Amino acid sequence: MAEPKSSKLSHYDLWCRWKEEGDTEAKKGLIEKYIPLVDYVSSRMAAGLPKNVSKDDLVSNGSMGLIDAIEKFDHLRGLQFETYASWRIRGSIIDGLRQGDWVPRSVRDKAKKMEDAYAVLEQRNLRSATDEEICSYLNITDKEFQQMLQEVAVATVGSLEEPIREEDAETRMSLLVDDKAQSPESKVHETYLKDSLTAGIDKLTPKERTVVSLFYYEDLSLSEIAEVMSLSPSRISQLHSKAILRLRGALGKHKDQLLQK
Rank of each mutant, 00 (worst) to 15 (best):
Y216P: 06
K242T: 06
L197F: 13
S241I: 04
A226V: 07
I201W: 03
S213E: 13
L220A: 08
D219S: 14
L239E: 07
S230G: 14
D202P: 07
V212D: 02
T205Q: 06
T205H: 04
E208W: 00
L231E: 13
F215P: 01
K242R: 15
L197C: 12
L204Y: 02
Q238P: 11
S196D: 05
E227T: 11
S223N: 12
S241P: 10
R235Q: 12
S241F: 04
A199G: 03
S213N: 14
V228A: 06
E208G: 02
A199V: 05
A226S: 15
I236C: 07
L231F: 10
Y216D: 06
L220R: 11
L220C: 14
L214E: 15
K207R: 08
Y216E: 08
V211W: 02
S232M: 15
S213F: 12
S234G: 08
Y216M: 09
E208M: 07
D219M: 13
S237A: 13
S232T: 15
Y216T: 04
L214F: 11
V212N: 02
S230A: 15
I236W: 03
P206W: 04
T198D: 14
L197G: 08
I236P: 09
D195W: 05
I236D: 03
S213A: 15
E227Q: 13
V212M: 10
P206R: 05
I236A: 03
Q238F: 11
R209A: 06
S196M: 10
S223T: 10
M229P: 07
K242V: 02
I201T: 10
Q238R: 15
Q238M: 14
I201P: 06
S223R: 06
L222M: 05
V212G: 00
V228E: 09
A199I: 05
S237L: 07
L204W: 00
V211R: 01
L220Y: 11
S237M: 09
V212Q: 03
L222E: 00
F215I: 00
S223L: 05
T205E: 06
T198W: 10
K203Q: 10
L214R: 12
K207A: 04
L214T: 08
L220Q: 10
Q238T: 11
S234F: 04
D202F: 10
A226I: 08
D195P: 05
S213T: 15
T210D: 13
T205K: 08
S232P: 12
P206Y: 02
V212E: 03
S234Y: 08
T198G: 09
Y217P: 10
K203W: 01
L222S: 01
L239H: 03
M229W: 05
D202H: 15
F215Y: 07
T198E: 13
S237N: 11
G200W: 01
H240R: 12
I201R: 11
L214K: 11
I236S: 03
S196R: 04
Y216K: 05
A199M: 09
Q238K: 14
M229D: 09
T210F: 01
S221D: 09
D195V: 14
Q238H: 15
E218D: 15
L214H: 12
V228N: 05
